[in-house]
């Protein structure tokens, strides 16, 4: 189950976003080990809960703790029960692809359960501190990871340099309408760039050509969904998700430089190599 960030509950919930439980914490930390060949992912980490009252509820079986795991791209939405402590979970073969969201949760397993933790905000009247089976009583932050091969697709695989008679010499135009991003250049420039791509100096293209192109592409992705069915869009999305880049917000220049691995640094290194 996905819970919206704006969700509010009529009863106390131990979560960073609610602040209902003073400084008590319920936290999830996970590493992901992917075996891309076997389409498998192993989650390994821990879930920690430091409110003694809720911990006692879980130990006594009056509440259940676990992970909510969702992967929209493969129609997966499950609850896996775990005691707070070390967690290992095998997202077995073939279940996930794209963005996977994992969130720790503690849920009431009893009707008429009274929440009696001393840390609960005093503004909750007694009647608001009673929950029913299935009510959420604690939530961690959402953790995300990007499963699958798409995030590893080299960015080069979604760009195509194309000769175009109508473009003036010395400039480029970008065409986003096809499955790959087409960089259109006149014959002279096309010849030069094709040669340069095979030289040690090719890294100069990262900052002079690909950086402005990637910024334009990110801008186009930000402003409309019209390109969502293009292959280049899928690869760019997967890479952005994997690198924690929020396409809709944030600086385009920062995002593009992150995707291209700091191209001005590469430029610097090219000149260091050339000057010997």
């Amino acid at each position: 189950m996905r819970i919206k960030p704006t969700a509010s509950f009529p009863h106390p919930v131990l979560a960073e976003s609610t602040g209902d439980y003073a400084d008590r914490k319920f936290q999830l930390s996970l590493d992901v080990q992917e075996d891309l060949g076997a389409a498998q992912a192993m989650l390994d980490g821990s879930m920690t809960l430091d409110d003694p009252f809720i911990s006692a509820l879980v130990s006594a079986g009056h509440a259940k703790a676990g992970l909510m795991i969702t992967c929209q791209e493969t129609y997966l939405d499950t609850f896996e029960e775990f005691y707070p402590g070390n967690i290992q979970f095998d997202l077995s073969s073939g279940k996930v692809r794209g963005t996977v969201i994992v969130r720790g949760v503690v849920v009431s397993a009893k009707d008429g359960l009274e929440l009696k933790s001393g840390a609960i905000n005093s503004e909750f009247p007694p009647e608001a501190r009673v929950v029913q089976t299935g009510d959420i009583i604690a939530l961690t932050e959402e953790l995300r990871f990007e499963a699958g091969l798409e995030k590893l697709a080299p960015l080069e695989s979604i760009f195509r340099l194309k000769l175009h008679e109508d473009v003036a010499e010395g400039v480029f135009k970008i065409d986003l309408e096809n499955e790959a991003i087409e960089i259109l250049v006149a014959p002279g420039l096309h010849g030069f760039l094709s040669l340069l791509r095979r030289q040690p100096m090719k890294d100069t293209l990262l900052s002079s050509l690909f950086l402005p192109v990637v910024m334009s592409v990110l801008d186009a992705m930000r402003s409309e969904d019209a390109y969502a069915d293009r292959r280049w869009y899928g690869v760019m999305s997967a890479r952005c998700n994997a690198e924690g880049i929020d396409i809709k917000n944030g600086e385009l220049a920062d995002a593009a430089q992150k995707l291209l691995d700091a191209p001005l640094g590469s430029l610097h290194r090219v000149f260091e190599r050339v000057s010997g």
Binding site: M1, A7, K64, F79, V105, V107, G134, D135, I136
Partner: peptide
């Protein structure tokens, strides 16, 4: 059903 963890309800409920 918003916010209810149906996964721990029984079928009858």
């Amino acid at each position: 059903g918003a916010g209810i963890m149906f996964e721990i309800w029984g079928d009858n409920r």
